[in-house]
Design a protein around this nucleic acid. Structure first.
Lengths: 148, 148
DNA sequence: TCTGAAAATTTGGGTCG
DNA sequence: CGACCCAAATTTTCAGA
């Protein structure tokens, strides 16, 4: 799909506030509301917009600990481990990567001892290296085309 | 702020589809539209909902390479490095962590050689270990209170 | 793109624990 | 008094040409 400057502007605006009305977006990019609606629909249909969502403050929800776990899966255990973590709500994200460790995961938990339990459960599947997140200087940055 | 079962349901629904109407959410949780609107407003005001956003498919936008860089910052270079990356749109996320490496970053780029350039730029500030993301078995999971 | 019709959000007033 | 419902007014979205 071809992305012109206007579509990039729409995507930037929607990332910052997905509840802008089409009319308001149109005012920003110089289009009428129906024209914006049509573009957004096509962006959804093409899959470029995967979903409209909300970003939550996990700390305020009582989940104060973020951890990043690098994980080296034992031979033959990959499939069962992926199935295992897909059902754990504490595992927020999991990436398969090149390099020494096979997986890099991000977890969100309420208390340190929850993390301990999880690491114990993981030990059946491989070896983990855990880092606690102290802060997130850059978090979920708005993505745009600026090439500086 | 107190979060009852209804507010958790609202948060789950909004994460899955932030464009549900208040009336539709109300049908799911057994409230009227204005009651839902008021709850959502309070969730925003309290900061639990940080923003309404869209999740994008970066591959379809031509940004096919995700990388995770572990970074050990040289003494005294932390502040200048954080300022440096805050202005780089390729750095999607940056976490300060415990452990051997000080920072773990997620980057999104179009081509491998862009990554090479970035790693070269980073070398003034510290030592990096780069992993290319092959796939993301779990990505931006919907967060809810289920304790199973 | 424009216009009318349908649906959504917002606001005010009133009610129940 | 806070949280909710109902109903009217405004805004937004949708579907026709």
């Amino acid at each position: 799909m071809e992305l012109d400057k206007i579509n990039w502007s729409i995507l930037t605006l929607l990332q910052e506030n997905a509840r802008l009305s089409f009319a308001e977006i149109g005012r920003n990019v110089g289009l009428s509301a129906p024209a914006v609606a049509e573009r957004v629909l096509k962006l959804e249909e093409s899959g470029i917009i995967k979903r409209f969502s909300v970003d939550l403050d996990f700390e305020k929800l009582g989940y104060s600990f973020k951890a990043i776990i690098s994980f080296k899966v034992y031979t033959g255990k990959m499939q069962s481990f992926l199935k295992f973590i897909s059902e754990m709500h504490e595992v927020y994200e999991c990436n398969r990567v090149t390099g020494e460790h096979c997986l890099i995961m991000k977890l969100i938990v309420q208390k340190p001892n929850e993390l301990e339990n999880i690491i114990n459960l993981f030990s059946d599947f491989g070896e983990s290296t855990t880092s606690i997140v102290l802060s997130s200087p850059v978090e979920h940055k708005v993505f745009n085309q600026n090439k500086n």
